[in-house]
Amino acid sequence: MDELYRDQILEHYKRPHNFGKLDEYDLDFEDTNPLCGDEQHVFIKLDDDGRVEKVSFEGQGCAISTAATSLLTDELDGLTRDELLQIPKEKVLELLGIEISATRMKCALLGLKAVKGASLGASADWDDEGAPGDPGESESL
């Protein structure tokens, strides 16, 4: 079996959960990955206690970003807006259960970023990982 494109990932890519736009929603946010043009729009309906009652997403994305958001949106019921903001990146990586390279990290985290954006009502941001120095120093070409 493929290390990255495992059956579970392909299944969520081909048939994502919670896909589409909610008829009624309280929060929504669209975020993009400008590097590859991926877009995800998250919709959240809250119950009377301000907890997530329904969540959905739509958009265009690769297998990793689509599967990540499909998996993540299965986990959000009952959370408050504050709790949505507290979800660590590791949660998404754990749900995916695969090794995510630096180049695919933005794909894996696009949905979480959109969920946090919906909760905040503004673009959520975090620092990009980078590596200092010259690739030739640590690697013989």
Binding site: L4, K14, L35, C36, G61, C62, A63, T66, T103, R104
Partner: peptide
């Protein structure tokens, strides 16, 4: 059909074939 360009590029990289995926600064 059925494979996002980013995934195509990722799999090509495993074959050491370097291509680009995305909007190519031409949205």
């Amino acid at each position: 059909e059925g494979i996002h360009p980013h995934d195509v590029a990722e799999i090509l990289d495993r074959h050491a074939v370097a291509v680009r995926s995305g909007h190519h600064c031409a949205q």
